[in-house]
Amino acid sequence: MDALYHLDTTSPLLQFAEDKLQIIALSFMALVYIFKVKWILSFKAGKERQAPTGNPRTTAQKGAVYSLFNIFMPWSMPSTRQHPFFYLQFGIFHVAVGTSIAMSIIIPYFPQLIANEAVIFALQVLFGLGCVIGLGRFIRRTVSPYIRAISTPDDYFSVALLTVWLAFAFMAAPNNRAETEFWLLGYFFLTAFFLFYVPFSKISHYIFYPFTRWYLGKTLGRRGVYPLPLNAGNEPLSRLFANTKPLEGK
């Protein structure tokens, strides 16, 4: 597909960055993903022989589907229920990243979709929030002894990369070639780098997400655990956001 270039205002470098470079990067990422999926499929899936247990209204399939969409039901897990602000950040951050990827296709090929000022404003709010959340996540990773203890260089780099990339997305959203070419260039080069880097980093978690969730859900569905009933924790409202406080030992 030919990009709808604003030939008068677009430099050859930006033309390359937003078109050819993206296609190369995307193709590379797709190729590596195919290998990754093939790789994981090369491991045998465990087989469940037993007759279903638990609530007869659930099945392996229902459990698997529930599990896949679990993340959209923050009430379904204590970890999200007890930390609603964290969950909100998680949601905004992921929506911002997804939108930023979409924008890398919209700008060169469908710029009219984001020509409206209100849309640009909405995008900038989203990217801005995403960037602030990313920064917060980076700081949390550095400051919290818990998170620091499990962080790898890849964890730090990935969140830093996404944060900077969202900052560039924020600046590039107006798609004003004359005035913001620097930001557009930065945004597209970072997008390409991101696409090259993702398959080798933890950012590729979404490739594994369907596998982990599907298999966990299938097992727990067959066992009548998933879908969890709404009253799974059966916690009165007053306890909803509180954790059980341990008793003092002797």
């Binding site: 499929l41 045998k44 465990g46 998170i147 978690h205 596998f211």
Partner: peptide
């Protein structure tokens, strides 16, 4: 497969 996915998927 289940175990490999679980070992790969953690985002810390």
């Amino acid at each position: 497969r289940q175990v490999v996915a679980s070992l790969e998927a953690c985002v810390h």
